[in-house]
Nucleic acid binder design. Structure first.
Lengths: 160, 160
DNA sequence: GTAGTATAGTTAGGAAGCTAATTAACTGTG
DNA sequence: CACAGTTAATTAGCTTCCTAACTATACTAC
């Protein structure tokens, strides 16, 4: 109730709200290409991986990269396979695993999106000065590390 | 591809990742009280409204406060009513509208959560200095205003 | 006072996330 | 080599979000 209590709670609410607004803004952008923001996350991640020379990622790796659980990835990949944007192929070294990789159609889509993507993001971020953007990125990065550490050490189970 | 392009995209990814991590950390906290983070959002909002003297909020107002669409609110309220935490009552002045308000049970739950809530949030935010927290809140607030303005002016439809 | 429009809420159907439980395959130890 | 434990992915079933379309009420303007 005091300012001391309310301030942190507000920082929290700000974050949730910001992401909500961002998703509303980005949705029409991606919709022009027939995909969702989450799907873009998968495609962009695979694209980035290709740039390092690897053909694709296993489902588990994709799960970790995107910070979503494996069952959610299964569903996403299902839909992307149906859309012919990614492949799910066997891995020689491990019969259980599947490699997810871009199809030519998927690769072409990514390059098409990237052509206008920077402009879109600039438009959205130009509400912040370059300094503020850098600050935001830096603070969030440090925050992420802290949160990851809390998760890894099972902090929430022990609290109170 | 260049640093200039990659920096903004990363700020974006940071935000999504941060919220993902936060939700993972908060979920067990709320689970101890038998509710989800989203449900807490509704209960806390109603609680805040009560502090101003109003009995509750119409569904539309709740939708705007929480930055989620009316159909989503309908579902949330349905479940909360089933859990006996909120009421959905008629409004005299408008036959169409429904007023959502806390039940005694809901009010009791909110106060019970609030007792440990500040501690939980402090534990999570103590990865950031007080300065950083203030900066984050301030930058996000300005960002939100900008995003809201883009949405209100239909910027995304016009872009590119 | 009736016609047309706007607003409040719900319904239907889908996407994206979750946990818990299952299946199949790999690994390592006796 | 066999068996125990681990790991990769999926399935089932849930919540929470969405859009589009609908119903019912309220408002407005003639």
């Amino acid at each position: 109730m005091t300012i001391l209590q309310q301030q942190p709670e507000n920082a929290f609410r700000s974050l949730v709200k910001t992401v909500g607004l961002l998703e509303r803004l980005m949705q029409p952008h991606f919709a022009r290409f027939g995909i969702s923001g989450s799907q873009w996350g998968v495609l962009r991640t695979l694209n980035r991986v290709e740039e390092t020379g690897q053909p694709g990622l296993r489902l588990t790796d994709l799960s970790e990269q995107l910070v979503i659980r494996p069952p959610s990835v299964t569903g996403m990949v299902d839909r992307l396979v149906r859309m012919k944007l990614v492949n799910r192929t066997k891995v020689a070294s491990d019969t259980r695993a599947r490699l997810v990789s871009l199809t030519p159609k998927g690769r072409e889509l990514v390059t098409r999106v990237l052509k206008v993507h920077a402009g879109q993001i600039d438009g959205i971020l130009n509400g912040l000065s370059a300094d503020e953007q850098a600050t935001l990125h830096c603070v969030l990065g440090r925050f992420d590390d802290h949160l990851q550490q809390l998760i890894d050490t099972g902090w929430m189970a022990a609290a109170e």
